[in-house]
Design a protein around this nucleic acid. Structure first.
Length: 231
DNA sequence: AGCGGAATTG
DNA sequence: CAATTCCGCT
């Protein structure tokens, strides 16, 4: 169904990992056990954030990389309680859970801004994924790792495809907003094919710095970004 | 609104 | 182990 990533013939040594390329620490521990793991709050947040039908409930803060605003705290709490079968959930409890993420370095609070938090995507992220490429960084927030651009990266075993999906969408959405570039050709999104085949996320990522060269080695492209803030 | 300790839970 | 519940403090 998915994950042609690891079966590409490249020896995927668990633990060893192309130098300099990594997900944030917390991205590794999503669903360690096969299939059956309880949904995590940050995962759920990411999930809501990537669907535009919740734009009025929770959304990325334009201009700030990784920063999001909970526009309707009660509704988010209700949704979260629905997912976890916790009808007594409210924003007070949910926010406590979010606060536990501070120490875990997953989130931190944006002081002064109401209901505003920020993901700690502090590290370079490079993903081996079909037909994805990001080029020249017009924004001061984005520094493209030139040496990393044309180097293949393996997905670590911990990162599951679902999470990968979320992170990819997260990146695209945030990059778009950073560029002030809501312009999409046609109608992308994962609307059509969420499940199905491995080739579900085919989207030409153009518009980031004009015309590009063709993709390296037969359809494989690499997404490379630095997140703005440090730890 | 936001923080974090403490006890509890599955 | 990641919340959930409760709550006193600022």
């Amino acid at each position: 169904m998915h994950c042609s990533c690891l079966a590409e013939g490249v020896p995927a040594t668990p633990g060893s990992w192309i130098s300099g390329l990594a997900f944030p620490d917390w991205a590794y521990k999503a669903e360690s056990s096969p299939g059956s793991r309880q949904i995590q709050l940050w995962h759920f947040i990411l999930e809501l954030l990537q669907k535009e039908e919740f734009r009025h409930v929770i959304a990325w803060q334009q201009g700030e990389y990784g920063e999001f605003v909970i526009k309707d705290p009660d509704e988010v709490a209700r949704l979260w309680g629905l997912r976890k079968c916790k009808p007594q959930m409210n924003y007070d409890k949910l926010s406590r859970a979010l606060r536990y993420y501070y120490n875990k370095r997953i989130l931190h609070k944006t002081k002064g801004k109401r209901f505003t938090y920020k993901f700690n995507f502090s590290k370079l992220i490079v993903v081996n994924y079909p037909l994805w490429e990001v080029r020249a960084p017009p924004s001061p927030h984005l520094l493209l790792g030139a040496p990393a651009l044309c180097r293949p990266a393996l997905l670590p075993v911990g990162v599951q495809s679902e999470l990968l999906h979320s992170i990819l969408f997260t990146h695209r959405a945030m990059v778009e907003q950073l560029m002030g570039q809501q312009t999409r050709r046609g109608s992308p999104e994962a609307s059509a094919d969420k499940k199905g085949s491995s080739s579900s996320v085919h989207r030409e990522y153009s518009g980031l710095g004009g015309p590009r060269e063709s993709l390296p080695e037969g359809g494989r492209a690499f997404l490379a970004e630095y997140m703005a803030d440090g730890a």
